[in-house]
Nucleic acid binder design. Structure first.
Lengths: 134, 134
DNA sequence: CAGGATCCTCCACGATACTG
DNA sequence: CAGTATCGTGGAGGATCCTG
């Protein structure tokens, strides 16, 4: 508990920012759980239905820069790119798993509330009537 | 590991959304660590320097709706409002603590990277020259 | 197959001013 | 003291088209 400070540049906040990128955690979790820590780009993408191509690539790039995974390019034609968890990535997956499990363990409490609890409406909430005109 | 699915409405994603709201985790952590789980609005706000008034209040309201804390209003003049962790809030704090500690434990690895690792530039990175005019 | 480049939407978050 | 109202903005995230 030491000095529970949330200074702008502290490590814990960095972690929160990682969690805030929407797909990072899910990519890591999936890469680990369904691909044993390594997978080709396409295969990984296919196991994450909701992610747009742009965000998928962009997030992976940021994760590489962030030291969470490595990128191996096989310069064949067509190219084969493989992503692999780094040690840090592995450790982070451990944390993601905790979050994942916490969610499952508290699913009842979370479901007992209004459909929206946080503040973020994933915009899929509204897409139902996005066909207003025609 | 059961069925590692990240369906749109699953509980784990709800949790990620909570983490995505930027201040929720910090408010909970601070409310617990520095105020023993209960504090008046002003006091709590004062222990979170970076939060704007608007987001502070708004986040608290969403957290109340989300069942993470309770709001007690003492209708004196001026009013005295106290926020208190709910059982769910307490449990969530446990998770936040894990994230917090993970960050401290991996601070070296996180710092070893470029100043930006995720993708989100908290825009405070730029505020340095926000005094451009006068 | 992998991903770059563009354009666009929307909402999280902030600053400021006001109320009871 | 606690909160609401309003306005403005950046940038996360998506769709679509193009390249090697």
């Amino acid at each position: 508990m030491q000095d529970d400070d949330w200074r702008e540049d502290c490590a814990p906040r960095r972690v929160l920012e990682i969690f805030a990128t929407k797909w990072t955690s899910m990519i890591l979790h999936t890469l680990n759980a369904r691909h044993k820590g390594a997978a080709r780009s396409g295969a990984l993408h296919r196991s994450l239905p909701g992610v747009s191509k742009k965000m998928f690539v962009q997030t992976l790039r940021d994760m590489e820069t962030g030291g969470l995974l490595d990128r191996h390019i096989d310069s064949t034609v067509p190219p084969a790119v493989t992503y692999r968890l780094t040690p840090l990535g592995h450790r982070f997956v451990g944390l993601v798993d905790l979050v994942y499990d916490w969610g499952r363990d508290n699913a009842d409490a979370l479901d007992a509330l209004q459909p929206r609890e946080g503040a973020r409406r994933t915009r899929s909430t509204v897409l139902s009537q996005s066909e207003h005109d025609a």
